[in-house]
């Protein structure tokens, strides 16, 4: 009971701070939007996907990846913020409270995931910009998938940050872990068109499964006209073109397993850190 309240307390603080910090919200949503509008539009007007199925353009393809990117960046940042927080913030106060360390880690992870999900909800609402139709069901599923993916990534951030002493180290993590995680997630280019050695890396990137799930859910309410009088569901087009690789159940199962492992790692790492 007390532990549940402690977790809620940590979560509540994360949430309150998020709501107060509007500039961070703008930044965290602005960055993926810039990617979408500039990189996405630029690439789709200058290049085309190799062997792309008809009805699929780059902007549509990239859109779910942009949500994944927002989740990734927001979550890893939430996780890493404990480095700073531990020395100079609220977290220090929590560490001497009569609350188990793992509960602090869990509260932090849930808080980070909530924040990331809210941001991806805002991004998801902009899907029509990329020619993707939405429904309430699609929005809810996108939100749930974002939450799950974010739990995994925030856990990763906490697990690493619990052992790091300075923010300088965080820059390294961004460059050598987070960016590759995104590039290899299938968010920017399809897994199947990458060289074999890269495909192997992409298949071990947990975000690949998150993006795959986001893509099939995001596409699920959209129909495109291939020719006059001939239209097809976007999700079928993507699947037949190999742009969606697994069943939603498989993606979710992989993400859930990864989340469990990383969350446990975060709790352990955070409990042991002095």
């Amino acid at each position: 009971m007390h532990v549940a309240r402690a977790i809620y307390t940590i979560w509540l603080r994360e949430f309150k701070v998020f709501v107060r910090e509007r500039s961070r919200i703008v930044g965290m949503i602005g960055q993926p939007l810039l990617y979408l509008l500039i990189v996405g539009t630029g690439i789709s007007s200058g290049m085309s996907l190799n062997n792309a199925p008809g009805g699929m353009d780059y902007l549509k393809f990239m859109y779910p990846g942009i949500i994944g990117m927002s989740v990734l960046f927001t979550s890893i940042f939430s996780g890493a913020s404990i480095i700073w927080d531990r020395e100079f913030g609220f977290l220090k106060e929590v560490l001497v409270a009569p609350v188990p360390r793992w509960a602090v880690a869990v509260g932090k992870i849930l808080g980070g995931a909530t924040v990331a999900s809210i941001q991806s909800a805002i991004l998801a609402a902009l899907a029509p910009v990329a020619g993707i139709s939405l429904s309430v069901g699609v929005m809810v599923k996108l939100l749930l998938l974002s939450f799950l993916t974010s739990l995994a990534v925030t856990s990763l951030g906490v697990a690493i940050a619990a052992r790091m002493e300075s923010m300088q180290g965080f820059q390294m993590i961004m460059n050598f872990l987070v960016m590759p995680l995104y590039f290899l997630s299938g968010g920017m280019f399809p897994v199947q068109s990458a060289p074999a050695w890269m495909q192997k890396l992409m298949l071990v990137d947990p975000l690949t499964y998150g993006v795959d799930a986001l893509r099939q859910v995001a596409f699920s309410h959209t129909t495109v006209e291939l020719a006059p009088g001939l239209s097809a569901p976007l999700v079928e087009i993507a699947r037949s073109g190999g742009l969606i690789r697994w069943d939603l159940g498989v993606d979710v199962a992989v993400m859930a397993a990864v989340t469990l492992v990383l969350a446990a790692a975060a709790a352990v790492s955070f409990s042991r850190a002095e």
């Binding site: 307390t9 309150k16 107060r20 100079f88 913030g89 609220f90 977290l91 409270a97 609350v99």
Partner: peptide, 24 residues
Amino acid sequence: FQDPALDNRLTAEEHLILHAMLYN
């Protein structure tokens, strides 16, 4: 603590309420 363990984005009262929740 030697370094302030406060959050700029919370009010005085919110700090106290969160503390009370942590300390039962």
